[in-house]
Nucleic acid binder design. Structure first.
Lengths: 370, 370
DNA sequence: CCTTCTAGGCAAGGGCCCTGACTAGAATGG
DNA sequence: CCATTCTAGTCAGGGCCCTTGCCTAGAAGG
């Protein structure tokens, strides 16, 4: 049975859902505004507000409609209650951890960061994660508005993530920047609900998707690590293990035209940092070797043939610098594809994770009511 | 507004939808059986049957419950009316055209085929398409049960298909077996509704998905043409233009280890048919060159890194013969993936198209009521 | 022929939403 | 300062949908 069983409670919960969504969009509304906004009649809207207030999801803000809007009786504004809770968005990168707490409006409640020395060691990273989240907790407590822990967390990590466990995974010969961390376990005690972990490039692609109405594109991330996120039919596709877009072993064109896994191209060009699995970004930016552009062109050709994106979005420190060369290379291919730089420049992964955290929080609020 | 506006008509249409779906599953049911099957009360079920009978979607079959099932009063069986219509599933391949007409139960109403001489010329293929569909029409008319044209058509074509127009497309240097055909235009006069066209490999993957509960896999089709269908999160992903999986230009490992587009491997090995863009399957089966297996291994590696499937399914005449070699090759890779032969062996593309036609027809029936 | 058992129908009731009218209450303007 | 005007919110009535519980129809079994 796919569609819900018909019943009156279904109808009622649908009305409540409409009211809640309207309040999420507009922050505060009178009963009359809710009626026109949701399309239900005034008495129905009023009744829903009564129910939701009773349930503790909605509160009378005490504010009254300003006289400035005309004559007429003043109305009472209603908004979501603070008890609907908050969500945590966390970004874990070799540079450090950033954590944000957002409420159901998407407003930033608190933000904390914790840096990690280079090179990052797994223990340091995990410690920074705890530090950032505890700082968030302290800030929220100090604010005094909200009590209780976040209802969920969404985590971005700069490494491959196992879709089923949320653990970070090392793939053979591939860059592994953070080490074996289990964000679900680390955050377990700090969050009153599910912890969702995914790769930072997937989240950056999500942010890009939210900023642009594109249903099919690929986000190629070229920095210390190599990554590629696939957005197909309007959603990020993670693959069975969550490892889609982990392209280190993709076969591409090597410096002498030989077939070679992408990551090895950086090896033979001497562009991997000694004692580390990461790519040496600074040296690469100095040299700008054409062989790298050709190798990335092979990646783009593979994406084009397998995924057929409308667009390739390039991110990452050296990727954005070489975007013109990469675009020119792609234009030579038998099936050229448009290439451009990422539009979201400021904390793209955290932006995507935050948007997802907000969406999940809202869904949670509506489902707990229904 | 994502969720439907709450109202009583919504409730009623939901009830009707449940009743229709139950009849689609069970072919014929009494009002009492409908009540227990859908979970709604007896009066509600009875009322819904009355409405749907009035609307011409449901009929009293005249059959009565057999006494054999116990004592008690006999009930009247209801089933979908013939007027709910039929759907067309068509497979277009170089060997010829097969068309089937199915009703809302998925029962075969009529089947016709029209062969095409080798080598196939576009005009011959288009003529065979018309012939097959006209034969179907004659058969349906002769049957006398159903009047009117099919309400939709789902077409499988053994070439790249433009997602927006449904036209067959020639890609540079890639095998092009059928030629520039526009199935939507050809079928326009024979179908009372939308015509959906897609690549045969995508439909074969759809059939494989229906037969297996796999959410993420790739279907690699190795025959005269090369194809690859991507199933991600439980659905076939077609890409922006509908050209996902058109892998002729994917860069892979050539016979001497050089980087080379997949289709060129067959060129340098002398495995493309003279005067044609197709692969010479017979010669390939004789020679079974290891270089081909290596090249296919590169394709699988690309799919694994970009899509992360749970499984690679191999189809096509020479693909299924070489499946063990391909599996062994894949096992050598840094990220091995399970490889097996396709489970659906009999007319896989038509099977997938038929399943989709059935699903779309059912959706159409329910939507027209609502 | 009577009992038993199931299909189907009928009546009453509760709940949800809607319309239309009414009340509350503040700003405007003479 | 008071009547007017205009809007927020409530109330009453009604329609519709679904449910429960009971009743009738009607065939099989003893």
């Amino acid at each position: 049975m796919d569609p819900a069983k018909p019943s009156q409670v279904l109808l009622r919960s649908l009305t409540d859902e409409h009211v809640l969504r309207a309040l999420m969009r507009h922050r505060r509304l009178t009963r009359a505004e809710l009626s026109t906004e949701t399309g239900v009649s005034k008495p129905t809207a009023g009744e829903s507000v009564r129910r939701l207030t009773e349930a503790g999801l909605v509160v009378d803000t005490g504010e009254r409609t300003p006289g400035g809007r005309g004559k007429g009786r003043v109305g009472s504004y209603y908004s979501l209650a603070p008890q609907v809770g908050t969500a945590l968005a966390v970004s874990i990168a070799p540079e450090g951890v950033v954590a944000e707490c957002v409420d159901a409006y998407g407003d930033l409640v608190a933000r904390a960061q914790a840096d990690v020395g280079r090179p990052a060691r797994p223990d340091d990273v995990a410690a920074a994660l705890v530090e950032a989240v505890e700082n968030i907790e302290a800030l929220v407590k100090a604010g005094g508005m909200i009590e209780g822990r976040p209802r969920l967390a969404v985590v971005s990590a700069a490494d491959p993530v196992d879709r089923h466990t949320g653990r970070l995974l090392q793939l053979p010969d591939a860059p592994f920047l953070l080490g074996e961390i289990d964000p679900v376990a680390v955050l377990g005690g700090h969050v009153d609900g599910p912890v969702h972990v995914d790769n930072d490039v997937n989240w950056a692609a999500e942010a890009e998707r939210a900023a642009n109405p594109l249903d099919d594109f690929a986000y190629v991330f070229l920095d210390e690590g190599l990554g590629c996120a696939i957005v197909s039919d309007g959603e990020v596709r993670r693959g069975h293990h969550g490892l889609s877009g982990e392209v280190a072993h993709l076969i591409t064109v090597g410096p002498q035209g030989q077939a070679m896994p992408l990551i090895e191209v950086f090896g033979v060009l001497g562009l991997r940092r000694a004692g580390s699995t990461a790519i040496d970004v600074d040296r690469l930016r100095d040299q700008r070797p054409p062989a790298v552009v050709t190798a990335v062109g092979g990646l783009i050709a593979a994406v084009t043939t397998l995924i057929d994106p409308e667009l390739i979005v390039i991110g990452g420190r050296w990727g954005t610098e070489l975007v013109d060369e990469i675009a020119a290379e792609s234009a030579q291919h038998p099936r050229p594809v448009r290439v451009r730089q990422a539009a979201v420049e400021n904390e793209p992964s955290l932006t995507g994770a935050r948007a997802d955290a907000l969406q999940r929080l809202r869904e949670l609020i509506i489902r707990t009511e229904a």
